[in-house]
Design a protein around this nucleic acid. Structure first.
Lengths: 203, 203
DNA sequence: CGTCTATTTGAATGTACTCAAAAGCGGTGG
DNA sequence: CCACCGCTTTTGAGTACATTCAAATAGACG
C-alpha cells in the first residue's frame, strides 16, 4: 500500500511569511495535521457542533454562514486557498458554533484540532504568536468588512468583492455572493445588469 | 496635599469573576492603572491615533464609532459601567485606530497601556488568560451583534438594545442609539412612535 | 435530451432615507 | 424667573433602493 505524499509547500510558505521556523519544527506541525477532502456542498462544520479544529484551505473554497430564525442564510465569510476557516470563538471557548462552513467546490483542507494546537504551542512557542496573529487578523478583517457594509452601497461592495477575490465569481454561485454582500440574489442580478448597461453607454 | 483614594472595588469584582488573584496581585495590577476623567463629548481616543491602552469604564458611558468617507458616523459599540473599551486591533498590533471613542456622559476610566500590560503578563501570567478572554468576548460579541443586524428588523434590534442596556436610552442622545442600530435618527423616532401607537391600540 | 437548479426579469410593495420644517428641551444670561 | 439660543427630536413629503413573489430563461449535469 502506497501513501500518496502530501504537498505542504503552500502551507509552509504561508507560515514562513509570519514566523520563522525550521524544517524540523514544520514537520512537527504537519505531523499533527489531518487532511480532509470535501466535495461540493459538504460541510466542514455545522451549527450546534463544537468547532474544535481550524482548517487551512489548501485547495478549494468554502463559505461560512449562519441561518437565522426565519431560515435565511447569511454568508459571513468566504474562504479560498491560503486562508484559514473555522469558528475561532467556538474553537477557543469550546462552545457550540452558530455557523455552517460549507464547501462551495471540491476542497482540500489541512486541519488541526485544539488539543494538537496546545501541544504545538508547548513545543514551539512561536506558534502561539502565529495563531494570535491569525485571530487578530480575523477580528480586524471582520470589523473592516462590517464597516464597509455600513457605509458603502451594494454596488460598491460588489466591486470591492471582485477586487478582493479576483476570479471568484466564476467559481461560486451568485446567491452566495449576494448573501455575502448582504443583499438578495435578485438585487445582485440587477446591480450587475445596471453596471453593464452603464458600461456600454459610457463608450 | 491629600490624595483622594480611588475605589477599585468594582474592577476587582470584575476580574475575580473571571480569574483568581490575590489582593497583592490585584494591587500590582492597579499600580499600573491610570485614572482618566472625561467630560461629555471628550474623546478617549480618536481615529488615526494609536490606541495603545485599554480602558475599564468605572463610571459613565462611551460610544465607539467610525466616520466614513461621506463624513457619516457609525456607532460600533456603546460601553457602560463594567465594560472595557478601546480598539483591540490597534492595541495589539500598534496600528492606528479607525475609531473614535467619545464620552456620552462624564466618565471615570481606569486605563492600562500595552507596555504595562506586558509587564503584568510577565509577573502574573494568569492575566494573560484574563485578557485573552476579554478579546475573545469582544470578538464573539461583535459577531453576534452583526448577525443580529443582518437578520432582525430595526424594531427588533431596538427592543434588543433596550434589553441589553436597560435604562440607557435615558442617558444617551437618541441619534447615537439610532446609529448603533444602523438607522437614521428620524427612522428611530418613527419606530418608537409606531410602537407606542400599537401599544395603545392593543389595550 | 430532459430535469433540476440557478439566474434573470417583471411588478408591486415596503422600509428606510433625505431634505426641510416644526416642536421640544435644556442651559445661560439678563 | 423668564426669554432666548442652540441642539435634539419629531413630523411631513417625496424618493431611492432593495425586497418579495411569481414567471421566464439559462445552465449544468446525469
Amino acid at each position: 500500500m502506497t501513501e500518496s505524499p502530501i504537498d505542504f509547500s503552500q502551507l509552509k510558505q504561508h507560515i514562513l511569511k509570519r514566523i520563522e521556523i525550521t524544517d524540523e519544527e514544520f514537520a512537527q506541525f504537519t505531523s499533527m495535521i489531518k487532511v480532509i477532502h470535501l466535495n461540493k456542498k459538504e460541510f466542514f462544520s455545522q451549527s450546534g457542533e463544537i468547532c474544535d479544529a481550524q482548517a487551512y484551505v489548501n485547495k478549494g473554497c468554502l463559505a461560512t454562514y449562519y441561518t437565522d430564525d426565519k431560515a435565511h442564510n447569511h454568508v459571513i465569510q468566504i474562504g479560498v486557498e491560503d486562508w484559514w476557516i473555522g469558528d475561532v470563538a467556538s474553537f477557543l471557548n469550546g462552545t457550540p458554533t452558530r455557523y455552517n462552513v460549507e464547501a462551495l467546490e471540491e476542497c482540500e483542507l489541512f486541519t488541526i484540532d485544539a488539543i494538537s494546537m496546545e501541544m504545538i504551542f508547548e513545543k514551539i512557542p512561536r506558534f502561539e504568536r502565529f495563531f494570535r496573529l491569525l485571530v487578530q487578523k480575523a477580528y480586524a478583517g471582520f470589523q473592516q468588512r462590517v464597516m464597509e457594509g455600513m457605509s458603502k452601497s451594494a454596488e460598491e461592495r460588489y466591486l470591492d468583492f471582485m477586487k478582493k477575490y479576483p476570479g471568484l465569481k466564476r467559481r461560486v454561485a451568485q446567491h452566495y455572493i449576494a448573501s455575502y454582500l448582504g443583499i438578495s440574489p435578485e438585487a445582485l442580478s440587477r446591480i450587475k445588469k445596471s453596471m453593464i448597461v452603464r458600461e456600454r453607454s459610457s463608450k
